[in-house]
Design a protein around this nucleic acid. Structure first.
Lengths: 131, 131
DNA sequence: GTTTGACTCTATACCTACTGTAGAGTCTAG
DNA sequence: CTAGACTCTACAGTAGGTATAGAGTCAAAC
């Protein structure tokens, strides 16, 4: 049984964030000492690692909650888990396409500028276009 | 001279967002009718198009403000504008690399799952790893 | 002339996913 | 026994807006 500071050290998740995860329902409320200090066990450590890993993969809190309830459901199938992760992949893929599109547009816009010292500026002109 | 609803129609930017841009200093405060209604001119329309285009390219408000002050500076050089847009490109490129990395990880994780009906689940196991 | 409906105003709350701060209490090593 | 580290709650702030409440205004139909 460890206190929140030790948990923070072991997981690399800030103390404030751990308390926040409890508040939003991603982490079960732990037991408390008489002083009110939180006391975590092995299961909490595992849950925080779970949150850390899914967060790194860009999962939203909503999707993480869905995964957690699968996790806690004894009737879960790995198929359902897979479908959830595939949705996440699709979302990420769309974000990547969007950002790639922006990247290409920026490159084209930069290419318009010859870097002269005149006050005319093809980049600013582009930004003023009606679209 | 047009009212805010007409401006919204012409630019496609919601009325609430136009007021918000004024509040955060991206759009100069327009004149008002006696009733208090905002009245916009050609310059405001151009500014809103500018905001719309830079926002579409993922510029932060901070960077947009920097661009706007270049825009308003008669001593600006197109070189300075170019440098600002190049910084934006670099930021976007890094975001894209990050998201591509996530995408690849997700693909690898999904590939671990054979979709069986057993309760064991390589995906959930991956999410529980200490990292 | 009035009434209806669309429009506008301000102010405030809400969103995601946290982070930071104030002020008070607790624990532990010297 | 005290100093410093740790923990607690509650609330405010971040970016970039969106949504809502309640009040006032404008234009056209009747």
């Amino acid at each position: 049984m460890i206190k929140i500071g030790e948990m923070s050290k072991r997981t690399g998740i800030p103390v404030t964030t751990i308390r926040y995860y409890e508040k939003v329902g991603l982490l079960p409320a732990p037991g408390r000492l008489e002083s009110g200090y939180r006391l975590y066990n092995r299961a909490h450590l595992e849950r925080i690692n779970f949150l850390k890993n899914t967060r790194k993969l860009g999962f939203s809190q909503q999707r993480i909650k869905a995964l957690v309830s699968l996790l806690e459901n004894p009737n879960r199938t790995s198929e359902k888990v897979k479908i959830s992760v595939q949705s996440q992949l699709e979302e990420i893929r769309e974000k990547r396409l969007l950002i790639q599109n922006i990247e290409n547009q920026l490159k084209q816009i930069i290419a318009k500028c010859d870097g002269g010292e005149k006050s005319e500026c093809p980049i600013l002109e582009t930004f003023h276009e009606e679209t």
